[in-house]
Amino acid sequence: MAASHAWYAREVAAGVDRFLEPSRADCPWCGSSTLAVLLRTGDRFQGKPGRFTLAECRGCGHVFQNPRLTPEGLSFYYRDFYDGHGEALWDFNFRQMSSSYRGRARLFERHGGTPGVWLDVGAGHGHFCGFARRHWPQTVFHGLDQGAGIDKALRQGWIDRAYRGSFVDLSEGLPGRYDVVSMHHYLEHTRDPFAELDAAVRVLAPGGHLLIEVPDPQWSAARLMGRYWLSWSQPQHQHLIPVGNLVQALAARGLVTVEVERGAAHAWGGELCSVLYFGCLRAVPGAPWKPRRARWLRRALWPFLLVPAALALPAAMLFDRLLVAVARRSDRGNAFRLLARKAD
């Protein structure tokens, strides 16, 4: 913790504006210049310093971070998020997602039968692969991620092979190798979704399937919640892609969309619970990027924040459960998943 405090103090003192690229005047998806500011917000998860803007294209509906973070900026804001100080927190969260894992498996099973060799891109700590290999014990699972969690997944036996690094770079050496490629809540984190889709096509065998799950920026409740919607996820999320745009991009690469799930893919991230949860998390007094001068005050106020949050939690959980039921009945939720097939 002491080393982390020193590192963050140096980085913050140098200024965080250096982590942002110049703003762009056109949509990175369709090239349209009809852009509008959707929202401005800070770091909604960790409370690290910085302000971020999401722009929306009036032409195609694509939502993107503008200006976007540089690679160095992404490293700064991802540090201690999934790994390091944040590892235990996200490991707990990923273990609560068995219903989402089951839904992904069922979608593939309806159209793909039993998979042979499966590559999970953005595998994180390997929780989905750990679930899926119990469902398909004969399938070989490989995982790819840039974080250290992928090595842990290999040690735990959840995957048979770990790749650590850039998918676009690593795909050059894996042409036509996989029967299935999955990207679960991965594309929204990438700097260039088109390059990631090209890489997926490259590593898929003829007749192979691509399974994608991403947040749905067209969900009406997301607009009502504004910056408090969990899946805007600034500053980590770079692109939020409407389903029609993704289907078109896949078709342009020779992939035929087999099925799209919307309401069924609704992720119980707990929309109201998340507001409470991450609001408390941002106030954690021991976070190494917090200014030292404010730490004693945070320690004093911390218990007074937890008590009202705990009292409000049952009502928030009930609301979130009702939201899940409405989303699945209306077939519109906070995420969508899509299965596409590469031509033979």
Rank of each mutant, 00 (worst) to 15 (best):
residue 141 F to D: 00
residue 190 T to S: 03
residue 187 L to K: 04
residue 120 D to F: 01
residue 175 P to K: 13
residue 162 A to I: 07
residue 97 M to W: 10
residue 146 Q to W: 11
residue 187 L to Y: 03
residue 128 F to Q: 03
residue 175 P to M: 11
residue 155 R to W: 09
residue 108 F to T: 01
residue 114 T to H: 10
residue 117 V to F: 05
residue 201 V to K: 10
residue 145 D to R: 06
residue 107 L to F: 01
residue 100 S to A: 10
residue 191 R to E: 15
residue 78 Y to S: 04
residue 76 F to R: 02
residue 82 Y to T: 04
residue 149 G to K: 07
residue 191 R to I: 11
residue 174 L to H: 08
residue 180 V to W: 00
residue 90 W to I: 09
residue 93 N to E: 07
residue 84 G to H: 02
residue 141 F to K: 00
residue 95 R to G: 15
residue 169 D to N: 11
residue 187 L to S: 04
residue 113 G to W: 04
residue 121 V to N: 00
residue 179 D to E: 15
residue 153 A to M: 07
residue 189 H to S: 09
residue 196 E to F: 03
residue 165 G to T: 09
residue 96 Q to M: 13
residue 148 A to G: 12
residue 157 G to F: 06
residue 163 Y to V: 03
residue 152 K to I: 11
residue 129 C to S: 15
residue 85 H to M: 10
residue 113 G to H: 07
residue 82 Y to G: 01
residue 136 W to C: 05
residue 155 R to F: 03
residue 116 G to W: 04
residue 123 A to T: 11
residue 188 E to Y: 10
residue 80 D to I: 06
residue 127 H to Y: 08
residue 185 H to F: 11
residue 142 H to C: 12
residue 186 Y to K: 10
residue 181 V to D: 01
residue 159 I to E: 00
residue 159 I to W: 00
residue 143 G to Y: 02
residue 86 G to N: 09
residue 176 G to T: 15
residue 179 D to Y: 05
residue 155 R to S: 14
residue 103 G to K: 05
residue 110 R to I: 06
residue 78 Y to F: 09
residue 192 D to W: 07
residue 184 H to A: 14
residue 129 C to I: 06
residue 126 G to K: 04
residue 155 R to H: 12
residue 124 G to Q: 04
residue 181 V to K: 01
residue 134 R to C: 08
residue 120 D to H: 05
residue 101 Y to T: 09
residue 95 R to L: 10
residue 77 Y to V: 02
residue 152 K to C: 09
residue 87 E to L: 13
residue 110 R to F: 02
residue 145 D to A: 08
residue 100 S to G: 08
residue 162 A to S: 13
residue 199 A to F: 02
residue 123 A to D: 07
residue 198 D to W: 02
residue 170 L to S: 08
residue 119 L to A: 07
residue 98 S to A: 14
residue 83 D to Q: 14
residue 133 R to I: 06
residue 161 R to H: 15
residue 78 Y to D: 04
residue 143 G to V: 05
residue 167 F to V: 03
residue 191 R to L: 15
residue 195 A to V: 06
residue 143 G to N: 07
residue 141 F to V: 02
residue 130 G to Y: 03
residue 107 L to C: 02
residue 113 G to S: 07
residue 79 R to N: 08
residue 124 G to D: 07
residue 125 H to M: 10
residue 157 G to C: 07
residue 147 G to V: 10
residue 167 F to L: 05
residue 84 G to Q: 03
residue 101 Y to I: 09
residue 101 Y to F: 15
residue 131 F to E: 08
residue 199 A to V: 05
residue 97 M to Q: 15
residue 142 H to R: 12
residue 128 F to D: 01
residue 113 G to F: 05
residue 153 A to D: 07
residue 114 T to N: 14
residue 158 W to R: 11
residue 96 Q to T: 15
residue 201 V to C: 15
residue 130 G to S: 09
residue 126 G to W: 03
residue 82 Y to V: 04
residue 109 E to L: 11
residue 151 D to L: 14
residue 132 A to M: 10
residue 170 L to C: 07
residue 144 L to D: 01
residue 178 Y to R: 02
residue 159 I to S: 00
residue 139 T to S: 14
residue 95 R to W: 13
residue 175 P to G: 07
residue 144 L to H: 01
residue 123 A to E: 04
residue 108 F to H: 05
residue 189 H to K: 09
